[in-house]
Amino acid sequence: MILVDITDSVLDPLIALGHCCADSHGAADLFIGRVRNLNEGRPVTAVSYDLHPVLCRNIFEKISQEALEQWGEHIHVFLAHRQGRLDVGEASVIAAVSSPHRAHSFEACRYLVEQMKVRAPIWKQEHYVDGDSEWIKGHVLRNPA
């Protein structure tokens, strides 16, 4: 069971855990990515997230489906990302997976996060204490060979 979302609203981990829940699931793994106050020695005040909403949702669904194919159709998968300007400490992404046993939840949840980082059309612009802003360099998007 898959639930993905792109939103302007505050991300709620309880929604992720509510989705990643079943009587047969003895494990649920939750990852929250948050805006941190320092990057490469520069104090950060906020990050603006720009993304391609339709393609991003499609990629999230593909990644989630891949997780089901790899760890079993019975797992529950949640992946949501926020857009817009976020202050330090706010959650930018939540990934969660539940499964009968913990190993699959850990592995699948990490898979969601690592794949999202390199495949989802998301960009971030950091805002610094000195008033400067900078787009962060990322991973080049390419189709698999």
Binding site: P121, I122, W123, I136, G138, H139, L141
Partner: peptide, 9 residues
């Protein structure tokens, strides 16, 4: 669309 290198999360 043109997509520069990505960096979500």
């Amino acid at each position: 669309s043109i997509l520069p290198p990505v960096c979500g999360g």
